[in-house]
Design a protein around this nucleic acid. Structure first.
Length: 438
DNA sequence: GCATGATCATGC
DNA sequence: GCATGATCATGC
């Protein structure tokens, strides 16, 4: 029998031992030749269990280190443009069985066994390397906080509630805050049955949202985060925002600037967003729950007649990058699957005033329309064309320049350049969505 | 008054 | 020096 170099009953011991993999690859721990012919990401976790921790691999849904109650996860990092690393994608935790889960409770769920206590091992993802040649750079022994547990429980119940309503096909990652129901299966073609509707649904799995995983990855460096949902009985972001902001509805921008604008530049283009953070009573730079849930705040200026004055922009894309992506792992899909907090200011006779806010997720059909616009854009780039869909040709989103000026260009496969562009939400679409009741 | 192309102000 | 959120400018 093999002697382990760590105590499998002790999470601390397991964690200390795991550090031997830092700045190394799994291949460094494999004696002799083994047959590894897969780049399959999912394999790496199992291979680490087998060849590094010397565990008998099983696919039971209990924790990997059973006696320590500890789950092992390996996950990839990507390089940031400005240096450093960040999680490449969400952390997938376990498949959702639509038929079984409707009879479960979160407290007794398989999922909870896995996510309560985890050893996360982060490696630098390099596309052309085999899984056993990926380099690990950081391990984190992570235990869920009580408040995060409460939020995940609520997330879990939201997802299961939708399945019980026969709406599994309408699930979206934006339905929830930390625990998302992400799609499984390649190319988006797979469908499976659901218990309370004839409509077939995408197979899905629970996952920590990328935004949530990111905060685990940088944990310890989050001095700039302020938690706002402190009471576990009051986990509703909408209520939190309403409690803070309702009393300012109707106040003019000028008077809000007078009250909250101390030290802020009136000319800053994000001044209205900065004011709202102060109206929310947030002292630090970021709201912890917003960051973890990946909530996007956007200021919407609307005219006297209620029409938004502008479309809403997003970061510019890089043509040569997005043609190598699928819709499923595209940045724009991540955006349309996000929750938004719209902060609304309306023009009045004496400047604009704070009109209110709306916590919003894009409806299912409109996410399909966004996918169409994205696919059209990628197809055109592949053909070296730049006649992307205009606002007049779409109902939800369009493509338009987004650069510091027209000397900032992007490149087509054939080397020709064009002004940097991004996806925009149509102003008319925003108007329609804002006019809906919540 | 909207569609479209272009650019500003800030922060990192 | 560029990315980003946001807004401006022009022409139809």
């Amino acid at each position: 029998m093999q002697v382990l170099e760590y105590d499998p009953k002790s999470a601390t011991s397991i964690y200390e031992y795991s550090k031997k993999l830092i700045n190394k690859t799994l291949r460094d721990f494999i004696d002799g030749e083994i047959k590894i012919d897969s780049k399959n990401k999912g394999d790496l976790g199992n291979l680490v269990e087998k060849y590094f921790f010397k565990l008998a691999v099983n696919n039971k849904s209990e924790a990997d280190f059973k006696e320590a109650g500890l789950e092992l996860k390996t996950t990839g990092l990507k390089k940031l443009a400005r240096g450093g690393y960040t999680p490449k994608e969400r952390l997938v935790l376990g498949k959702i069985d639509y038929h079984k889960i409707v009879n479960e409770k979160f407290q007794d769920s398989h999922l909870l066994d896995k996510i309560n206590f985890m050893l996360l091992m982060f490696y630098i993802f390099e596309k052309d390397k085999l899984s056993i040649d990926q380099i690990f750079i950081k391990n984190i022994l992570w235990k869920m906080s009580d408040i995060d547990f409460a939020i995940m429980k609520k997330d879990w119940e939201t997802v299961v509630g939708k399945i019980r309503d026969g709406r599994a096909h309408e699930l979206s990652e934006s339905d929830t805050l930390y625990l998302g129901a992400c799609t499984k299966g390649s190319k988006g073609k797979n469908r499976t049955s659901q218990p309370f509707s004839k409509e077939s649904a995408r197979p899905r799995a629970f996952a920590f949202k990328q935004s949530y995983l990111k905060t685990i990855f940088i944990s310890g460096n989050n001095d700039e985060y302020e938690s706002v949902l402190k009471d576990t009985n009051e986990l509703d972001i909408n209520k939190y925002v309403a409690n803070k902001l309702n009393k300012f509805i109707g106040r003019s921008f000028n008077s809000l600037y007078e009250e909250f604008g101390n030290g802020l530049n009136l000319k800053a283009k994000n001044i209205r967003q900065l004011l709202v953070y102060r109206m929310l009573g947030v002292k630090k730079k970021h709201i912890e729950e917003f960051v973890k849930a990946g909530i996007i705040t956007k200021v919407v200026r609307i005219k006297k007649n209620g029409t938004p004055s502008q479309a809403i922009s997003f970061p510019a894309f890089k043509a040569l990058e997005i043609i190598n992506q699928d819709w499923e792992d595209s940045d724009f899909k991540a955006i349309v699957e996000s929750k938004f907090l719209f902060l609304i200011y309306q023009d009045g006779n004496d400047g604009d005033y704070f009109k209110g806010f709306k916590l919003w997720s894009m409806p299912y059909e409109d996410r399909l329309e966004s996918e169409r616009v994205w696919n059209d854009t990628v197809d055109k780039i592949r053909d070296n064309k730049t006649n992307f869909l205009k606002i007049s040709q779409t109902n939800v989103a369009h493509v338009r320049p987004h650069a510091t000026n027209n000397t900032y260009v992007d490149e087509l496969p054939n080397g020709k350049t064009f002004p940097k562009k991004c996806f925009w939400f149509n102003s008319g679409y925003i108007k329609k969505e804002l006019s809906k009741s919540i």
